[in-house]
Amino acid sequence: MSNSDLNPQEKHQAYKTGYRFGLKGRSLSQIPSQIRGNTQLRSLYDEGWHEAQQEIKAGGQHFKTQYIRHRVSWILMTALAGIITAYLIIQSRYDAPTEQETNPTEMTDAPISKLKPLHTNWESMDSSSLNLLSDQERQSLSVTHLARPVIPKQAISSFNQPLDVRLYNGHNKQQVFSAGERLPKYVRQLVFEVDRDELDPPIALTVRWLWQRQLMQSQTWPAGPSIIMSKQSLFSAQQGNWDIEILDPSGQVIYLYQFNYVQ
């Protein structure tokens, strides 16, 4: 089977096979025969296997460096909960009504003692001791929780000058995607390349990435370099429709590139 006959499902299966074998501790040479015979499938298998090895290594390092901090945070929280519980039990005994106070015929005007508020100086605690997530985990979660501006869809203005674009996998430059294509989940970084060599006169261009019309990034290149490249990382939480827009110096959209991630 030639590389041109491969479909996205076969490519994804080759990547998953390498990733699964890497997690199981198999060597890189233990590659299935149906993958070994195809150059592109073998490349995707190797990429999945190496990513699994990196995650295993990163997981072990994370466990070593974070274990003590996690233990300390849980001990602090458990001790604090025990102190609060003991304080409430002791205070409730002092505030319990006597037999005379519970008899309506012998009520006095003496005020019942109030439970004093418990003040805890949270500011004095080290915030890092309660931080149980790694930097990579926080970055992935922040994708859907950060407030990002929503850009309304604009009409594409006429642009009569040549403008060549190319979207490809940041970890495999040979894997080029077409406009409107559904990208597989294993793609974690994209590069959008714009060739403006034939623009006359040269003008500044802005490239912005929008996920579900939420602005993920925007970058402007002044007139000068003939080829500009914009990179964007992808996370599992960013599934759905993506738009890549090219704007002229006046802010008009002169080019629209769309694709779908995973869904």
Rank of each mutant, 00 (worst) to 15 (best):
N3T: 13
S4L: 06
L6M: 00
E10Y: 04
K11Y: 07
G18Q: 00
G18S: 03
G18I: 01
R20C: 13
G22E: 00
L23I: 09
L23H: 08
S27F: 02
Q30R: 06
I31W: 00
P32S: 06
P32F: 01
Q34I: 07
N38Y: 02
N38G: 02
R42T: 04
S43Y: 06
D46V: 15
G48F: 00
W49R: 00
W49H: 06
Q54P: 00
E55T: 01
G59D: 11
Q61E: 14
Q61G: 09
T65N: 07
Y67W: 15
R69H: 12
S73V: 02
A79Q: 13
A79K: 12
G82N: 05
A86H: 05
I90P: 00
S92M: 07
R93F: 12
R93V: 13
D95F: 09
A96P: 05
T102G: 03
T102H: 07
E106N: 05
A110G: 07
K114W: 11
K116L: 11
P117E: 12
L118S: 04
T120Y: 13
W122T: 15
S124P: 11
M125P: 03
M125Y: 09
L130H: 10
L132Q: 15
L133F: 05
L133C: 03
S134T: 11
Q136T: 14
E137L: 03
Q139N: 15
S140Q: 12
S140L: 10
L141S: 04
S142M: 14
P149Q: 00
P152E: 10
Q154A: 15
S158A: 13
F159N: 02
L163K: 03
D164T: 14
V165P: 12
R166P: 06
L167S: 02
N172C: 07
Q174N: 15
V176Q: 07
V176E: 04
S178R: 11
K185S: 12
R188Y: 08
Q189R: 10
Q189N: 15
V191T: 10
V191I: 14
F192H: 04
E193S: 13
E198H: 10
L199W: 06
D200R: 11
I203P: 01
A204C: 03
T206S: 11
R208I: 11
R208T: 03
W209F: 15
L210Q: 02
W211P: 00
Q212I: 00
Q212H: 08
R213T: 09
L215M: 10
Q219N: 12
T220F: 06
W221S: 14
W221A: 13
W221G: 09
A223S: 12
G224E: 08
P225E: 14
P225H: 06
I227C: 06
I227M: 04
I228G: 01
S230D: 07
S230E: 03
S236T: 15
S236R: 13
G240Q: 05
D243Q: 13
I246K: 00
L247Q: 01
S250K: 13
G251A: 04
Q252C: 10
Y255Q: 09
Y257S: 01
F259C: 00
N260R: 09
Y261T: 11
